[in-house]
Nucleic acid binder design. Structure first.
Lengths: 173, 173
DNA sequence: CTTGACATGTTACAACATAACATTTCATAC
DNA sequence: GTATGAAATGTTATGTTGTAACATGTCAAG
């Protein structure tokens, strides 16, 4: 019996039809839960930043977050946004995409493990995977070069299923 | 008979003992060859930028390249460096590491294919791999999310063999 | 020796990110 | 309730990375 590659994909690309309200709620709920568990404070400001990021499945830049905060109250300094982002990243509530200098909400429930990101060049939506097979392939490749992995960054640009189907190219949810 | 994973690793981590002079020469020679073949002009300025990048196996930032140019003649404007970098990247002579905002010389001979980068957090040296197994794992993961891959970015931070052996932590060659 | 494409120069600015220090907030111990 | 200390936020300034727009120079082909 052939050994099956256990593709442990926890989440994938956001689907056209998913209930996005629930999606945002669950991001915020997970944040509450994780901060509670770790004794960290999810302040109003941090929650606001997370909400803005989770509001779409696209990656959003720090200064765009800042603009959105400005339009619903007073305009914070850039450092304020970056501090909130640092906090959210420390607690694995958001991820930074190095190839875009931008941020997405974590869709994996605050796990520490690395993830792989699929970035649609058409609609801008970002999917998050956690493929064991990819992780193992990278570990093996690194090992063969006597390299000890600390943190792999995997960001795949391409075109998502919806956009491939002649579909949206509308900016994502 | 089990199908073997053919690890097609073309190059790996730069070795402590390798002949770096030859290494630089071969980068420049490859550049000459490729530009010749493609009818592109490897001007003095572009060659200088490539030489500066190939001078070490660490990633170097655009403004550091600029400083090195300044110290051997007059100081060009940033755009000049970025133009040279754009040219070199178009021709796969250098790679940009998104996680560092910095550039390394390509050690794979101007191939178009993607690559995986191993970035040592101790010595700063960068290794370049081309693992089919990694490529295939990513293709498979993407396919399972109905995602068509255009360009994967894989940048693995960690610790190289030399540094792991209680060795250098000297800044790399 | 012209001409046109490519390369470079010049100036200014946009976008992303952090340093350093002052002040406020909030849970806890008293 | 209030003192207290750690964590969070505010304020000001600056550092780092990257590009836009337009002018000028260079070089090979005709």
């Amino acid at each position: 019996m052939p050994k099956r590659d256990d593709e442990a994909i926890e989440t994938a690309f956001p689907d056209e039809t998913h209930d996005h309200r629930a999606c945002v709620r669950s991001s915020l709920a997970a944040a509450e839960r994780i901060c509670e568990a770790r004794g960290r404070r999810l302040t109003a400001q941090r929650r606001q930043v997370l909400r803005i990021i989770a509001d779409s499945h696209r990656a959003i830049g720090a200064y765009d977050i800042l603009e959105r905060m400005a339009s619903s109250g007073r305009r914070p300094a850039p450092i304020t946004v970056y501090r909130a982002l640092d906090f959210l990243m420390e607690n694995a509530l958001v991820h930074r995409l190095a190839s875009l200098n931008a941020f997405v909400a974590c869709r994996g429930g605050g796990h520490e493990h690395g993830a792989q990101f699929l970035i649609c060049a058409e609609c801008g939506n970002v999917g998050e995977l956690a493929s064991d097979r990819v992780d193992r392939a990278i570990d093996a490749a690194a090992a063969s070069a006597s390299f000890r992995v600390v943190q792999p960054i995997i960001e795949v640009t391409g075109v998502c299923g919806d956009c491939n189907d002649g579909a949206p190219a509308e900016q994502g949810r």
